[in-house]
Simulated assay, not measured.
Amino acid sequence: MTSVERVVVVVPARDEERLLPACLNSIRVARHALAQRRPELGVEVVVVLDRCTDQSAQVVAGYGDVTSLVSTAGCVGAARAAGVAAALPAGGDDRRTWLASTDADTEVPADWLLAQVGLADEGLDLVLGTVVPYDLETRVLRAWSQRHHLGEGHPHVHGANLGVRASSYLAAGGFAAVPLHEDVLLAEAVKASGSAWVATDAVRVRTASRWRGRVSGGFATYLRELASEVSDVAAPGATQSLSG
Score class of each variant (00 low, 15 high):
Y169D: 01
V117W: 09
V8R: 01
V43E: 06
R38T: 09
V157N: 05
V66W: 03
R80F: 01
V7Y: 02
T207N: 14
A172C: 07
F175N: 04
S241H: 14
L88K: 05
V76H: 05
S228M: 12
A176M: 12
R38C: 08
A160N: 07
T97P: 02
V157S: 05
A143D: 15
Y169R: 00
G129M: 04
E44L: 10
S68W: 10
G64Q: 09
A189E: 08
G118F: 08
I27V: 15
C75P: 02
E44D: 12
S193H: 08
P155T: 06
P109R: 10
C52W: 08
A196D: 06
S71E: 10
A78K: 01
S168K: 05
L180K: 15
G92C: 12
S56E: 09
S71C: 08
T102C: 13
H148V: 14
V43Q: 10
A171I: 04
H156T: 14
S243A: 14
A187Y: 03
T97I: 15
V48K: 01
L34P: 04
L136K: 10
T97A: 01
L223K: 04
V11Y: 01
C75W: 03
H154C: 04
V203N: 02
V43P: 00
A177I: 05
K191C: 12
H148I: 06
V7H: 01
V203G: 00
V233I: 13
A160Q: 07
A87M: 04
A82S: 14
G244H: 13
L41S: 06
D15G: 11
V43N: 02
A143N: 11
T53N: 07
